[in-house]
Amino acid sequence: MPVQYYIFLSIALFCIGVMGVLMRRNAIIIFMCIELMLNAVNLLMVSFSKMWADAGRVDAGSAQLFVFFIMVVAAAEVAVGLAIITMVYRNTHSVDINILNRLKN
């Protein structure tokens, strides 16, 4: 199976995530779409790792470790982000992102 197949799959997943961020205004769904984009990148990096492992590189595992670190950062981001969304919901009783216009004042 060519690597391009995985490239196109992750491009499609990433673009679906971008569309979700642009189209929806529920903050939680926007957050989930960001997770989707991160996962598309992870998938691409694992397929490149497999490609270099097939080519005989011994350090192809580094890419998988980068994926691991991306997962770590995503988990931390979700913890803080959901806390912020909960806080916004507690203050405004809505998760509409247009409410955040008020940050301007």
Binding site: P2, V3, Q4, S47, M51, D54, A55, A60, G61
Partner: peptide
């Protein structure tokens, strides 16, 4: 791009 082989690597 090269095709991914189906044989297992232990990486």
């Amino acid at each position: 791009m090269p095709a991914l082989s189906t044989n297992a690597t232990d990486i």
